[in-house]
Design a protein around this nucleic acid. Sequence first.
DNA 1: ATCTAGGGTGAATGCGCTTTCAGAAGAGGG
DNA 2: CCCTCTTCTGAAAGCGCATTCACCCTAGAT
Lengths: 346, 346
Amino acid sequence: MYDVAERSGVSIATVSRVYRNPDSVRAGTRERVLEAARELGYVPSGNARGLASRTTGVLGLCFPDYADPEAEADAETDSGADDAAMLYSDQIIRGMERAARRHGYALLIAASLQGGPESLVAKVAGRVDGFAVLAQTVPTEDLDVISRRLPVVMLAGPREIDHLDHIVVANAAGERELARHLIEDHGLRRLAFVGGDPESPDAEARFRGFRDACRDAGLPVPDAPDLRTGMMTRAEGARAAETLLDRGAERPEAMVFANDQMAVGALRALERRGVRVPEDIAVTGFDGIPLSRIVRPSLTTVRQPIRQLGEQAVELLVQRLADPSRDPVSLELPVALARRASCGCG
Amino acid sequence: MYDVAERSGVSIATVSRVYRNPDSVRAGTRERVLEAARELGYVPSGNARGLASRTTGVLGLCFPDYADPEAEADAETDSGADDAAMLYSDQIIRGMERAARRHGYALLIAASLQGGPESLVAKVAGRVDGFAVLAQTVPTEDLDVISRRLPVVMLAGPREIDHLDHIVVANAAGERELARHLIEDHGLRRLAFVGGDPESPDAEARFRGFRDACRDAGLPVPDAPDLRTGMMTRAEGARAAETLLDRGAERPEAMVFANDQMAVGALRALERRGVRVPEDIAVTGFDGIPLSRIVRPSLTTVRQPIRQLGEQAVELLVQRLADPSRDPVSLELPVALARRASCGCG
DNA sequence: ATCTAGGGTGAATGCGCTTTCAGAAGAGGG
DNA sequence: CCCTCTTCTGAAAGCGCATTCACCCTAGAT
């Protein structure tokens, strides 16, 4: 910048104005400066600008590093269909990027390996005007410190820190509607709920919705899921389905899984065992992953508006940046029941 | 930072050391500093750090803003299948993020609206250690200036600037193999190539591969595509298919489209006209989008390793950062022929 | 007890830009 | 032709951190 100023015969202040507020500089001067900048290959330093102006024009996103990047190759060969499908975080990224662009922001993304001062989280926090965090990504302790300095919005998780904005999807309401559909529209009575890790707030909320539907219908209300799996993977779903079948006389009329992955695994397992879906038993998932539409029978599930989650996150950040003192906001995004073949609607 | 230093009774130099090089500070001192930082809610400024150290720990990606964010909603209702599928840029983002993470970098992404000093491109360039650009995203002039200051790698496009690293996929070789397959393995002789905008380097390279295959087989070698569409969209593909059919006696035995979108559109149009694929006519695409697997008949196409494009981009950037003086690198990523139903292989 | 290493710490400088605050240069009006 | 009011431009003071250099302290060697 000093070089550009010298070459065009002005001060650095004027060079700065050319970039920040072009109209405040006479046209002739401006052209000389731009010309010199071009000749010198001048690229303004975002760091210096950020330091001086105390704003970066960048929003951030931290998401969990589900897939170990090293192990990636294996996961792909395993299932081609998933390969090309969007992961949860991909969709949020897309949503945030779209919304950020509308507001003139760039987006800085990083998977959090772990907390602590060395982490990518710290790097992101130090380089953005505000950022979004996927649940269970950043240690609450770190988040607590960071959120005192800049806007943070918590995505798809419980509000661990009470002054944060946060957005969730209507897990309970969605599962309740799904279960209601099975009970009322298909006349099923014996439903089995397969949950996941008790630590997963999503899975627990879905179970609550399931219970609500049971209560609504006057059916016995379970205290806990009929079964819990650790990982909520396809393999676990298959095992769960077999376990449920082997309970003999207790065989349920419907298996309600806490997510699509498990439900898809179950579909495969049932097929192997010669159990017809939906004739012999209904199966449902939750999430609305692309695969749920492709499998046969197509999977009845609840679609989450994941991309909107990202878009809303940006909106909240922008709003808070505009008015830092406003009260914390809490949004619940609506979900949509997708009635497909696996419950008998196909 | 000054506050932290004061509160813990040390100088700012020591605070800096605690974060940058913890081992160089006595354990007791370090704990005091960390404790004070926690109490004060201290978040190190990435800007200041970057300014002082002349490095950001961030890599960037600029991609074109195909989808107007405002118009997004329409595009979705139009085709649910695409909705959940990954776009080209999404996959590159995923690839780059993975690779960047491995090297300890975060990723800054932005769609370039246009060039010029105001643009997001300029913002990205000023905030990263190096970045990747998708072809036809950033004006060559801007790129020329920027690339003199930091590493830039050009993705999937011609090397417009000769000192840049760049990566392309084997468009010509892939199309050549595809055409060879139609000619030799299926015994087809009259192939029609449907290209796109002559400005599209990808489409042109594919046409060259097509010509090569014709020459190899001793068939007449066309000077230009049998048909060109402007947009390479599904609608254009459908129109192209109908135009080709209506040429009467000249009806080709195979329609070779420059991308999957057009081929899928053609499939629909042919179905409407009662033309059977592949019995009456073979159809092929290029890209390997998720939809190509789902449509009926499934589409024979050439799969691009898009995600690897992103990963390789990061590798090149990292390497150049390590050795700025090395010669420009030019990579060509191999593609894979996907033989499916639409050519008669299903 | 004296000297020598080294590890640990502080003072000071600069990274490249934004932003007042003044001063200089034009534009009108008398 | 002089004076006032704008419009433009320059000087200078940071923004928050990394880093060099010098210094102090402690521990082991003499």
